[in-house]
Write a protein that binds this DNA or RNA. Sequence first.
DNA 1: TTGGACATGTAACAAGTTACATGATTGT
DNA 2: ACAATCATGTAACTTGTTACATGTCCAA
Lengths: 186, 186
Amino acid sequence: MAKAPRTKYAILGSLSVYPMSGYDIKKWVGEVTGSFWAESSGQVYPVLAQLLADKLVKCDENSAKGKRSRKLYSITNSGSKELSRWLKQPVIEHAVYRDELRLKLFYGKNLSKDDCINHLKQRREDAEKHLIRHREIARHIKEQHHSQQDSMYWLLTLEGAFYHDEAEIAWCDKAIKILKGLKKTK
Amino acid sequence: MAKAPRTKYAILGSLSVYPMSGYDIKKWVGEVTGSFWAESSGQVYPVLAQLLADKLVKCDENSAKGKRSRKLYSITNSGSKELSRWLKQPVIEHAVYRDELRLKLFYGKNLSKDDCINHLKQRREDAEKHLIRHREIARHIKEQHHSQQDSMYWLLTLEGAFYHDEAEIAWCDKAIKILKGLKKTK
DNA sequence: TTGGACATGTAACAAGTTACATGATTGT
DNA sequence: ACAATCATGTAACTTGTTACATGTCCAA
């Protein structure tokens, strides 16, 4: 019923940038904040309806002649207040991230060294792709200039993604090297 | 009902190390693999029952005189096979980790700089605690020697936690510095 | 003219957490 | 004697995903 503490704020945050449709929000969240957040349609639409009922957002139904129907949502004053209130609150360190690669490597004894190395190579590749993607997003942000305020925080957050991606790549390299070393001496 | 693809393998993995009770598994998973995995009792017990029904684990009920009742589970041959089968499969990059700090920082425009800095300081502190904790775990693993095979993979995985913790600390420092710089010049 | 992106939404399911109930044992 | 930890389990809830249904508009 009362859906989703977290999704709620991800949506309000998006709308604090500019008005969007449900479709836009899902896309934007996945593309721009994809390194640390995602939403599915199955979440966005119901929560958006709830936010509208609570008057935290308003809806400008764009049903002009011939136009494809599109509901453009924008944040209200109380929505902004509610967002700020939540943003100020200390971050709740909720669930541990579950990383399947690490789980598999941890129990690597039950696997061949080559299988472990392959898992790590795959992760390295993925991390490299992420890094490239994150750099692209940073470039986009710098090019199209949004408000200085917005882009500063976006770049700061992306910087975190760079650090994370690079750490992951470095770790994979080290782990692969160690595993390869063990193969030769045995 | 048919509970949990992932929990299932976390449990089988634990039991591939040595026999444990449900209580042990929950604790072990949280303590030793805590940097990338966790389980709650509400998951462990039902899944364990399912695994028993599927004969992937067997149970040695320790109801000896006076003893506290304790069900000691161990992995069966088919359990080991099922674990290996899963471990070999490519890692599925499932859900994006949702990081509330990054979400808050991303929408930092709606917040004061001090609030942002405080969030980052808190994260830095947490990351430092994690790093200390992970180093302790590594020390434990080296001291009590489990099989070389086990401890090698455990240390390899922990190495990943170090990289991650250090990257997080470095990022927080950089972000805090940038935000402080902006405060002074404005 | 057909496939892909735009657009909104729902229903069924999966996964996992929280909180509780219950009780034994151990250390201080 | 009291608290902490050991130990097993269940029920209600929350959160979120997947898959589907429905239809529009645009470009190759």
